[in-house]
Amino acid sequence: MLAGGYFGGWLTLPAAADLPLTDQALRAAGGAFGPGVVIVLPASACPLAETALVTGYLASQSAGQCGPCRSGLPALADALGLLAFGWAGDDGLYWTQQLLGLVSGRGACHLPDGTAGLARSALTTFADEVRRHLQNGPCDRIHRPPVVPVPSGAPA
């Protein structure tokens, strides 16, 4: 379950359903209230694929003003994409984790921080899923249409 929209965090469901819908409680659990967006991911969806697609969208929205964001967010989106849709290997996971640190706090705005936060949350919450992808390659669920909506069309 994604609590707090694109800049929120992933929570696991049986437990998260009992949380009060307050920013404090959601933050303590690793999510956020943010814009008030909660998205429940069905078991048929791949959380890594969903995160990779959202990250790709956020990367496309970079204003391109700060180098670490302009270069780092697309790299992060690619790394997550490889993790979800390909064979990333341990190096790929390591690179993904490195990128989180390389973009966080290095922009004039908080786009890189929010994007890295979502990605970090996915790697933590879905650590088992990450391991499965690393061992077995992409899962069958990546072929399903994504659940988390991402604006389409040319970025403004």
């Binding site: 180098g67 670490p68 270069s71 780092g72 790299a75 390389l102 290095r106």
Partner: peptide, 8 residues
């Protein structure tokens, strides 16, 4: 340098 040449 970071991987893109920006300073850390």
């Amino acid at each position: 340098p970071d991987p893109w040449g920006y300073p850390l």
